[in-house]
Amino acid sequence: MTERTVLVVDDEFAIRDMLRMALEIVDFKCLEADNILDAHAIVVDQRPDIILLDWMLPGGSGLELLRRLKREEATRELPVIMLTAKTAEDNVIQGLDVGADDYITKPFAPRELIARIRALLRRSSSAENTDRMQVSLLVLDGKSRRVYLDEAPLDMGPTEFNLLQFFMSHPERAYTRNQLLDQVWGANVYVEERTVDVHIRRLRKALQTSDMDYSGLIQTVRGTGYRFSSRGAPTG
């Protein structure tokens, strides 16, 4: 199995050292940075498989680096887990809205974090699925992990892609948030239910262009959760 590389971005040496030891014990390669400039240089030069990104950093916040990574084509789909002491809901949602795939609040257990890393890497490497699915003008290509609307590629993060892939594989059925967490995030990974709502909102936004709005494919089912329905596709 190819060694996977994790970039730890945190200004506290003790945390980086603890994470490096925990990651190397389970055969991850660990890269380290204590500021966003060095972190971005490492991302460009060494292409890690996933980033553990602290919120508060010298010379700029982790959120600034996250925004930059999501703007750039080469790093847009790079999985990111935010490490934060901020527990207020607005801060968590802000990080997820910018493009983080998951978050974990300090202090945390290294075993839980490693479980989340593995789950996120499994989701991000699911490109083996070569299914091509289509609803009206919306096409999902599992092999290239791209989504097209009227042949134009949509800008969509890896978690939104996985959600859409699951929904299109299981149309017209309502799923609770917990069921979606189990199916898309993994049954052995603890993620709060509100995380689903954030990614659903991002998926709906990704399904909207200046010319077409396919966000209606993702329907809210009151008292239950969400479902994917081809009846939500625009007509005419």
Rank of each mutant, 00 (worst) to 15 (best):
R4D: 08
V6Q: 00
L7K: 04
L7N: 03
E12F: 09
M18T: 13
L19H: 01
A22Q: 05
L23M: 04
L23W: 02
I25S: 11
A33M: 09
L37K: 13
L37W: 07
A41V: 07
I42T: 13
I42P: 04
I42N: 07
D45Y: 04
Q46D: 11
Q46E: 14
R47S: 14
P48M: 12
I51D: 04
L53P: 00
L53C: 09
W55P: 00
M56Q: 02
M56I: 07
P58M: 11
G60V: 06
G62D: 04
L65H: 02
L66A: 02
L66E: 01
L66T: 00
R67H: 14
L69C: 09
L69A: 04
E73I: 08
E73C: 01
P79M: 10
P79I: 10
M82T: 01
T84Y: 03
T84I: 05
D90G: 02
V92Q: 00
V92Y: 00
V92G: 00
I93D: 04
L96C: 03
V98M: 08
A100M: 08
A100T: 04
D101Y: 02
D102E: 12
Y103S: 05
Y103G: 06
T105Q: 03
K106A: 03
P107H: 08
F108R: 01
F108L: 04
F108A: 00
A109E: 15
R111C: 03
R111S: 12
E112L: 06
E112R: 00
L113Y: 06
L113G: 02
A115G: 15
R118G: 13
A119H: 04
L121P: 02
R122W: 06
S124H: 11
S126C: 05
N129H: 07
M133H: 08
Q134G: 06
Q134D: 06
L137K: 14
G142W: 04
K143Q: 13
R145E: 09
V147P: 01
L149Q: 09
L149G: 06
P153Y: 08
M156E: 01
T159S: 09
E160V: 05
N162Q: 15
N162W: 05
L163Y: 12
L164V: 01
L164S: 01
F167M: 14
M168F: 06
M168L: 08
S169R: 12
P171A: 07
P171L: 10
P171W: 08
R173E: 14
T176V: 07
R177C: 07
R177I: 08
L181I: 14
D182H: 12
Q183G: 01
V184E: 00
N188I: 02
N188Q: 14
N188S: 13
V189E: 02
V191R: 12
E192S: 10
E192I: 09
R194N: 10
R194I: 11
I200G: 00
R201F: 07
R201E: 10
L203F: 05
K205A: 15
A206I: 03
A206D: 01
A206M: 03
Y214W: 11
I218S: 00
Q219G: 04
T220E: 09
R222K: 13
R222N: 11
Y226F: 15
R227Q: 15
R227L: 15
S230Y: 11
P234W: 11
T235A: 11
